[in-house]
Amino acid sequence: MQETMPPVVLTDSKSPMDLGDRHVEPGSAPAHTTPQEVLEDLIDEITIDGMCGVY
């Protein structure tokens, strides 16, 4: 039996969180966002040299 995925709801969120192209306001459930996608978005690693404004 296929498990029904609950909609994603942000808790204690103070600002829109970057979910790629999807912007989520606190307390709302975005369409087409699976928990797996949310989990993958919870950590974003930036190449430490990957920010402009330093030489």
Binding site: L10, D12, K14, S15, L42, I43, D44, I46
Partner: peptide, 22 residues
């Protein structure tokens, strides 16, 4: 930070943006 936290690893200079849910 407002979105959660920044984590910096001094050993290997990694920078991570961490969502507040973690």
């Amino acid at each position: 930070e407002a979105f959660g936290a920044l984590v910096y690893s001094y050993k290997d200079r990694r920078l991570l943006f961490i969502d507040q849910r973690l």
